[in-house]
Amino acid sequence: MYGRKACQLVKEFVSSDSGQLIVFNNDLFAQVIEECDGHLLQLQALLRKMQVEGSDNQTTKNADHFGALVHHLSLVRNKRCLMAYVHNRAEVIQNLGWTIERVLPEEIEEKLNSSEKEYFKNHSATLQSYMSDLDLDLAVDMVPPKDPYIKVRVLEEIGNVVLSDQLANLARHAILFLRRTDAEQYISQGLMEELTG
């Protein structure tokens, strides 16, 4: 049936957890593209045939006319599905740009195709350039602040760092009381965790 593969592609995206990516389905994607080419060939063949027969596609409503229409609509549907697949994935990638800066962790990177990798690079550069225009880092402060200081545990060795209000030794397993804005970047990189309660 026409359009079934494209539909599968979209369903595959929908069934994945929101905000998570699964490996780009190159195989199915290529098959849908192939299907599109197939539709075009048949569409053109029908259009040619109609031209040869001299029928006007505004007035004659014969089998060829509707055949052509079905191929056209299948093509459009496939296009919408492909675009939806790529666009929805791109939205997830946009969100990544907010949480991770510049460098993608390997486990995510291997799920993207080359164009998506490029898109991530370009888009996060765009985001960074907006922030530097404004001279304001928008990637911190994701949750409303309760207290200027939070208690954190260092998960990975970071070493001596100059923070906005102190010089701290962020050794592994150390439990510290830091400015939230200082700690947030480390938390989002997974180097620290916030201790609550």
Binding site: C36, L82, M83, V86, H87, S115, E116, Y119, H123, T126
Partner: peptide, 17 residues
Amino acid sequence: IEDMKQHLEQSVLTKLP
């Protein structure tokens, strides 16, 4: 818009009729 257009073109649109 530039980024997105480029991405969509590379992945889908150039491959379509």
